[in-house]
Nucleic acid binder design. Structure first.
Length: 403
DNA sequence: TTAGATGATTCGTA
DNA sequence: TACGAATCATCTAA
């Protein structure tokens, strides 16, 4: 029986290090290269053992070569080079090489993962799209920041004096972009270098073991996948940074400012004068937006909030409703007394004295006559549920009608 | 510091 | 798509 051979150098024990492929008692090194017909996967290998016990010269040579290969990593570089050269020149090398090729082909190793398909990672696609949209990836033209700023502005959350913060935002986004591209370049360069290195190694190794071009390609693909996952992490971190930056600078809720008293009064005046149907038309919203100095969406938000909060606690708003009713009534009286006297201090500003009908020229909703009382029903069951019976009677009871 | 007010956002629904 | 409802985040007065 062929015993495991000590490294040629003989300067260290062979069983403690190496590739873990050392021959152990009971297993002949040539088991790995037996043709499949002789291979015994059940552990027993009478044929192989028989062969070694017969002291087959060729197989002993091959065993020597294999053993030398196994111990190459344990040797110094010079020794290894010399050994490699010796192996390359060995008379049995072509035979061993062809056997390895054959075995490799039959085990299907070379076809492993051959059917793996390259699908774009959906997460990566999302990250790419986001970075593109934010202006971090892709050509730098300030588009992302500008788009984000314009989006925030159009939502009505940005005040005109926020241009300084915009520039701050842009500069920080630019920093993120710079870091992102620097890191990306580093990764790409490292990937390229590593790929080249591995390909050279494989080409070199292909002289002593069978390595198909397809195998090299697959190895390159594996490397690229690994680096791609690192890049994904980079993109993820960048996205998070942009999100934090964006929320810090552009989240309208963080920039919330209360409307001016004048604007709030104007909105309230409209609301209570149309209490039976507080749903301003688009034209009315636009007019309100213009006169209050806010956006149409802010008007919509305000009415949405007002309706829901009014409905939730009618009693609480009763006093407010009465106040605006009184103001309107007073304004109407003054108008009657001096019909030619403008009831506002000037066009474009809100007056608390005008009647609901002539409320700064804001078109009545759906053609209804604005009123504080239970007027024409125009919007579902809002009116019957939410219009307080005493709204038109300032000073009347303030009973809590909240639901 | 804190509770209430308020503007904005999100989500489900008709 | 507008709206209601819930919720968040900030403002403000006490």
């Amino acid at each position: 029986m062929l015993q495991p051979q000590q490294p040629v150098t003989g300067n260290r024990p062979s069983a403690s290090r190496g590739l873990g492929l050392r021959v152990h008692p009971g297993m002949h090194p040539l088991n790995a290269v037996h043709p499949p017909s002789q291979h015994r996967p059940d552990g027993g290998d009478p044929g192989g053992l028989e062969g070694t016990e017969n002291g087959h010269d060729n197989r002993r040579d091959i065993g020597d070569i294999l053993q030398q290969i196994m111990t190459i990593t344990d040797q110094s570089l010079d020794e290894a080079q010399a050994k490699k050269h010796a192996l390359n020149c060995h008379r049995m090398k072509p035979a061993l090489f062809s056997v390895l090729c054959e075995i490799k082909e039959k085990t299907g190793l070379s076809m492993r993962n051959a059917h793996e398909e390259e699908h774009p990672d959906p997460q990566l696609v999302r990250l790419d799209n986001m970075l593109l949209a934010e202006g971090v990836a892709g050509p730098e033209k300030g588009g992302g920041a500008a788009a984000a700023v314009s989006a925030a502005t159009s939502s009505g959350g940005m005040s005109p004096d926020s241009s300084l913060e915009h520039s701050d935002y842009k500069s920080k986004l630019s920093q993120i972009r710079t870091i992102y591209h620097t890191e990306l370049e580093k990764y790409e360069q490292a990937c390229s270098e590593f790929t080249t290195h591995v390909m050279n190694l494989l080409r070199e190794q292909s002289r002593t073991r069978p390595i198909s071009p397809r195998e090299i390609e697959r190895m390159v693909a594996i490397i690229h996948r690994k680096f791609s996952s690192i890049q994904t992490q980079l993109k993820q971190s960048t996205c998070e940074a942009v999100m934090i930056l964006r929320s810090r600078f552009l989240d309208a809720r963080r920039k919330r400012r209360n409307f001016s008293k004048q604007a709030t009064e104007g909105l309230n005046e409209y609301f209570y004068s149309h209490l039976s149907n507080p749903y301003p038309s688009e034209e009315a919203k636009e007019e309100l937006a213009k006169t209050c100095g806010i956006t149409v969406s802010q008007v919509s938000n305000w009415f949405g909030n007002k309706r829901i909060r009014y409905k939730k606690n009618i009693g609480k708003f009763q006093e407010e409703a009465n106040l605006y009713a009184m103001k309107t009534a007073l304004g109407a009286t003054q108008s009657e007394e001096s019909p030619h006297t403008p009831n506002s201090t000037g066009s474009g500003s809100f007056s608390l004295s005008g009647s609901a009908d002539c409320f700064l020229g804001v078109p009545p909703m759906n053609g209804e006559q604005p009123s504080y009382h239970m007027g024409a029903e125009t919007n579902g069951n809002w009116q019957e549920q939410n219009t307080p019976p005493s709204a038109a009677s300032p000073g009347s009871d303030h009973s809590d009608n909240s639901d």
